[in-house]
Computed example of a mutant assay.
Amino acid sequence: MLNPAWLRSFKALAAEGTFTRAAESLELTQAAVSQHIRQLELQLGPLLIRRPRRVELTPAGQALLAYCDEVARADRCLATRLADANAMQGVVSVITPGSVGLSTYPRLLDIQRETPGLVIRHRFAPDDDVVTAVLDGRYELGIVSRLPDDERLAAESFCEEALELVVPKDAVVDDWEGLVRLGFIDHPDGQAMATRLLSRWYPGKRSIADVPVTGFTNQIALILEPVSRGLGFTVMPRHARRAFLRQDEVRVLQECVPVVDTLWLIHRAEWAMSARARHVVDELHRRLAAADRAAA
């Protein structure tokens, strides 16, 4: 096993680029850092190309740096497991897409408020970033809209999310032409979501690309602002629509069977979900189910 002090010096050198800055960051002498690197190179071969201004890693050095990251992830995993003696204390980190995040984050805060000692760390991100963050060990839990095909991830069904066509409360929309007259409020996923839903509702009609765009925002929490002011319609996930505070200013059209996606909860498959994370997930399931019953 490689000496942890040697690995810390190597990782600092890779990050800082020079022996002087690495030594300063570790509060060691430059001679100590040089000795650690020398010991590693005696065992592993050349790890560095020493340039005048900055060291460069050899392929062996790159492999050792990746190993250092793996050790750091294993240390975090061990700390999580050792902290599981009390399921009601510690950090639960969750990363989600915007729509379901708008619905779950307030409930996560409610759970934290009711559970002294529990700390919630949440981030909004698209599906690909969610998967990467969970694989890298930066977040314990993630929610994605596509079931990941990666054996390193464990996945379970979390909830369902329907796409909805939302119009201003007083809008008269009897057919496809009514939507065209109203105009489309677009967002980053708007075209894809509208195509999936409207192709089922209005088969044989032209595509959403033929509907005039009367607004755009990349903030999911603000998509219904222009809709509520009569500036157009949009297609968005139900969780995002329910998070809008002024529900009386918009209306959901229900023309036919909705398009419904399954959202998946993911975590690293190599180790069990922490007890406190399991508690949070179970509480979220319960509260989301209660919200669905109340809205029915």
Rank of each mutant, 00 (worst) to 15 (best):
D128A: 14
H285A: 09
V235P: 03
R121Y: 06
T18M: 12
H285E: 14
S207V: 10
A15W: 11
P46I: 13
L182N: 07
L231S: 04
V119F: 12
I208T: 03
E225P: 05
S93A: 11
S9C: 15
L179A: 06
R138Y: 07
R251G: 01
L65R: 00
R287I: 13
A66D: 14
V166Y: 04
P212M: 14
V100P: 00
L78Y: 04
R107W: 09
R152L: 03
V227F: 04
D136Q: 08
H122V: 05
I49W: 11
G178M: 12
M193R: 04
Y139Q: 00
L263I: 06
G215T: 11
R146F: 07
R21F: 01
A269L: 04
A23Y: 04
E164D: 06
R138W: 09
D174T: 15
P106V: 03
L224N: 06
L108N: 00
A290R: 14
F216E: 12
F10D: 13
D110C: 03
I143W: 02
A171L: 05
I95Y: 01
V130W: 03
V55L: 10
A240I: 01
L65N: 01
V281D: 12
R53S: 10
H187F: 13
P4K: 07
P46Y: 11
A240W: 01
V33I: 10
S25H: 09
A133Q: 11
L64N: 00
L109R: 02
D282C: 08
W6F: 11
A243Y: 00
D175S: 14
P226H: 06
E255I: 05
R8I: 04
D292F: 10
R196N: 11
A87Y: 03
S93F: 08
W201E: 15
P168H: 02
D210P: 02
T20D: 12
A296E: 15
Q89Y: 07
R229K: 15
H239E: 08
L40Y: 13
Q35W: 08
F233G: 00
V167Y: 00
M1T: 12
T18C: 10
E177N: 15
Q247W: 00
T96R: 04
A269D: 05
V92I: 08
A12S: 15
L7S: 10
R76K: 14
D174K: 15
S145C: 05
R123W: 01
A22C: 05
T18R: 12
R181N: 14
L109I: 03
I95P: 00
R229L: 15
Q35L: 13
N86M: 04
T104E: 07
E270P: 02
V134S: 03
L108M: 03
L263G: 01
D128E: 15
I95F: 02
D292I: 12
R38S: 14
C159V: 06
R241F: 08
Q89H: 09
S9A: 15
I143K: 02
Y139K: 00
V172I: 06
L265Y: 05
I266N: 02
P188T: 08
E27P: 02
T214F: 06
P46S: 14
R200F: 13
H187A: 13
C77V: 12
R8Q: 14
D248L: 05
T234R: 04
V211K: 03
F184D: 06
D110F: 02
Q35R: 11
L135W: 04
R146Y: 05
E225W: 09
D248R: 01
A221T: 06
A63I: 08
N218R: 09
W271R: 05
G178Y: 11
